[in-house]
């Protein structure tokens, strides 16, 4: 949203937020006729339970396009178990359009376990013909185990069960190792395997490594490769796509750095192409 947000906190423990402005999605065409207005009230109970209730209207010209109510809850039990949830109620469609509930067990500094359940429906503008169509529910279960191997080095493995109302469910497994830059080196390696009985199996990996050459210069090299199963004209094929790149960052001072990257993108569907980019970052 491009607009104005007003926050007021002197309400006996309650925080009130009012907001309004134009809807901004990440696209070149900015529709100034979209108007969003809403409010949020937030309060903490028993020091640890944070509750937020929000209301939003989106207008498309003179018509009310969307009317949504949101509720979020956050609770950390004894610095042991973090429980969080958010829900979205689509008033015009009279349905819960989004619900997320998650937990993270983080008692140990060496490992953690996160679980999530997601329920989601699309939200269409009441002015769109799509708002009157029947849609299926999408649900997802997610489990992730993370282990800290050393300061800045962690391994993780996760599993997602994508559940469709009338189609076969899909399973997605992912495992990886990430090195956060605490010294000279940083990088990651991840393997992904998706099994979908309705097609669109995917096998892929991501690999990246970077090092500081001097205290002002960092360079990296990476590759992402995916093999996607696709069905076309009742046949199936396996389409391989890849992205390979090298990048570098020159740091002049804490506020200014210069970055450059050259990448090669290729797939079985299209010819390879190259893309280069130079970016000067200035932090004000």
């Amino acid at each position: 949203m491009d607009g104005l947000t007003l926050e007021y906190g002197d309400l006996d423990g309650f925080n009130l937020t009012l907001f309004g402005g134009g809807d901004v999605s990440y696209y070149e065409g900015y529709n100034v006729k979209d108007l969003i207005v809403g409010a949020e009230i937030r309060h903490s109970f028993f020091e640890e339970v944070n509750l937020g209730l929000s209301y939003l209207q989106k207008w498309d010209n003179s018509e009310l396009a969307n009317e949504l109510v949101g509720l979020d809850v956050d609770y950390d039990y004894k610095d042991l178990l973090h429980i969080y949830s958010e829900a979205q109620f689509n008033y015009l469609a009279d349905t819960i359009s989004y619900f997320l509930a998650g937990t993270k067990y983080h008692r140990s500094e060496d490992w953690s376990l996160r679980t999530e359940y997601l329920y989601s429906l699309p939200v269409f503008s009441s002015t769109s013909i799509y708002s009157i169509f029947a849609v299926d529910e999408y649900q997802e279960l997610f489990v992730e185990y993370e282990h800290r191997l050393a300061p800045g080095l962690r391994a993780f493995v996760n599993y997602a069960r994508e559940m469709y109302e009338y189609d076969a469910d899909a399973d997605v497994f992912e495992a990886g190792l990430e090195k956060i830059r605490t010294g000279r080196f940083s990088g990651y390696v991840i393997g992904t395997w998706r099994e979908d009985p309705d097609g669109q199996d995917l096998t892929g990996f991501k690999l990246y490594g970077a090092t500081t050459i001097t205290h002002k210069l960092q360079a990296g090299i990476g590759v992402h490769v995916d093999v996607l199963e696709r069905y076309l004209d009742e046949d199936e094929d396996e389409t391989t796509s890849s992205r390979i790149w090298v990048d570098g960052t020159v740091t002049f001072n804490r506020k200014i750095n210069l970055q450059a990257k050259v990448e090669r993108i290729e797939s079985d569907l299209w010819d390879e192409y190259y893309r280069g980019r130079v970016r000067l970052n200035v932090r004000f």
Partner: peptide, 18 residues
Amino acid sequence: FSNNMNNIHRSDFHVSHP
């Protein structure tokens, strides 16, 4: 800039985005 590990836009996303 160097491609975030969690970037959902993986490899050639023209192919895998479906």
